[in-house]
Design a protein around this nucleic acid. Structure first.
Length: 205
DNA sequence: ATGACGATGCACT
DNA sequence: GTGCATCGTCATG
């Protein structure tokens, strides 16, 4: 039986997850499932890598106030902030009560459902390359800016519990990737048990 | 109207 | 490790 999703129409993880301190929310999202419902069926993957973006953090898109691009970050928790960078889109879960504007970037997935759709969407065959980066995984799941603001508790993009117990993940905490400011803050998290699926391993333990 | 700049990915050394 | 394609967004004039 295929792992990852029970049925279409299920609810996402409770909104309370996104009201924890954002670093805790980023840890809690490791081992959950990101699910996109499409006409051709579900596409999903286990969240294995995240990053937190906090208040007063110069790398946070919201750190210089609300703009047209980042307005979703200032909205209610548990919604998807989808933004474009270069040619890619990236997806975040908005954390904290409305107006606070913190978020968790989803950086890598272990593919679960809809792998052939992912291969078609990405135009690559290698399973390990399908979702091992924030721009790769959105492309694999068919997520673009039209889904900005979507409720991750209700869909059509959701974060749900995995349907099997995962055991010990061995959470790794390390520095964030691809930023020029606040680059030393250890606000990236990944599952050591799923290290082969992450975008990049920690350089120093 | 225009210029600077990416929370990237990929090709290449 | 380095270089760069490529374009939406934002700040500025």
């Amino acid at each position: 039986m295929e792992c990852g999703v029970r049925s279409v129409g299920m609810a996402g993880v409770p909104r309370a997850l996104y009201l924890q301190p954002t670093l805790d929310a980023a840890k809690s999202l490791i081992g959950k499932v990101l699910l996109r419902q499409t006409d051709e069926g579900p596409i999903s993957g286990l969240i294995v890598e995240t990053e937190a973006y906090l208040t007063g953090d110069p790398a946070n898109h919201a750190s210089r106030g609300m703009t047209n691009r980042n307005r979703t970050m200032f909205g209610p928790p548990g919604h998807a902030y989808v933004y474009k960078v270069h040619m890619q889109c990236c997806i975040n879960a908005v954390a904290q009560p409305e107006g606070v504007a913190e978020a968790v970037l989803i950086r890598a997935l272990m593919p679960l459902q809809g792998v052939e759709l992912m291969r078609r969407n990405r135009g690559v065959d290698d399973l390990r390359a399908l979702c091992s980066g924030p721009g790769k995984l959105t492309r694999a799941l068919g997520i673009d800016r039209s889904l900005d603001g979507c409720d991750l508790v209700e869909g059509p993009v959701l974060i749900v519990e995995p349907d099997e117990e995962l055991g010990d993940l061995g959470l790794v905490q390390t520095t964030r990737i691809g930023i020029r400011v606040a680059a030393d803050e250890p606000w990236r998290f990944y599952s050591k048990a799923h290290e082969r699926w992450v975008s990049r391993k920690a350089t120093r333990p």
